[in-house]
Simulated scan of single mutants.
Amino acid sequence: MIDVCLLGTGGMMPLPNRYLTALMVRYNGKCILIDCGEGTQIALKKSGWSPKPIDMICFTHYHADHISGLPGMLLTMGNAERTEPLLMVGPKGLERVVKALRTIAPELPFPIEYHEITDINDELTLPGMSEFKIKAFKVNHNITCYGYSMELERIGRFNVEAARANDIPQKYWNPLQKGEIIQAEDGRTFTPDMVLGEARKGIHLTYVTDSRPTPGIVEKAMNSDLFICEGMYGEPDKLQKAKENRHMTMYEAAELAKKAQVKEMWLTHYSPSLVNPKEYLPKAKEIFSKTVAAKDGRTTTLRFEEDNE
């Protein structure tokens, strides 16, 4: 299962009851933070989550409302006596931008590792978590910007009958179930496909902010269990402004969700002018009925299909 917490839902500037857009994802004891705008630390505290176990910070792009909270976050992590490396992921220029921000956070008790995205698509995993794929894909903003899709793969069921039919000693069953290839003492080789059925449906989460609608977003979000997408404007007269600034309206986001056949969509990254996003939700739900006007701190746990039954 994957725990998801939308820490903040604001765009451009934080408001008293709306922090800037940031997302926390937790799987198997590992935490990934996407974006770190002003107020992210307070949002974490209010949501009951901690900055100490953050293993990776991914940035969509380098506008201030998505990264200005980083120096304080790093200092807090350092004050919590963190010593293990922190991996940062983001568009080209990541190391230069982070080092500039670290002028006010120069001394940390942990090293920072950088993974700069230079292609249209990129894929990476955390150590020891090969089944959890993090896929970055380029979107259409007025500077280089990426969306992120996270996929938790699920292997097929273990087939005891097949293991016995292949005369595989029981001590090898668990390693095979984990995907290992076994070289037995008697010279035989055992592979996972000898004991596993077809792969089962995993969990798919997609996150997009600061972009015009693109076919690539639909492709990456296809069949997502949860699609978190910016709906910066709800007012009918803001479509042209959305086009000029390379953002999207709540209704354009709903069209993407419909085309991608996602299970549920959370709107986020609201303009400060959008005082009450729920006011415009009915029209968005006419396009995609499973649309939610998310608020700061909205949390869910995504589970495998069988676990939901």
Rank of each mutant, 00 (worst) to 15 (best):
E286P: 03
E306R: 07
W266H: 01
L6S: 02
P175S: 06
N166Y: 13
G10E: 12
E235N: 13
Y146A: 01
V139Q: 06
P16A: 06
G8M: 10
G216D: 08
I67W: 05
T118A: 11
N28K: 13
I134V: 13
H63P: 00
G93H: 11
A254W: 09
T300Y: 00
P16H: 09
D35E: 10
L74M: 09
F288L: 09
A257K: 03
P16F: 08
E219R: 10
M265T: 14
L15M: 15
T144I: 13
L108K: 02
E38V: 10
K45Y: 12
I57H: 02
F132I: 04
I143C: 05
H247A: 13
E84T: 13
T291F: 07
M73I: 09
L70Y: 08
F59M: 07
A162L: 14
E244V: 15
D186M: 00
M56F: 01
P277R: 04
F190M: 05
N79L: 12
I57T: 06
F288D: 07
P51I: 11
S50M: 13
Q183T: 05
K135M: 12
L176D: 04
G197H: 11
L74C: 03
G197P: 05
M222Q: 04
N142Q: 12
R246H: 15
M12G: 00
P14H: 14
E198W: 00
G156Q: 00
I155T: 10
H204K: 15
N308K: 10
T291P: 03
I168N: 10
H269V: 00
N223K: 13
K135F: 00
K30G: 02
E116T: 04
L94C: 12
G8V: 08
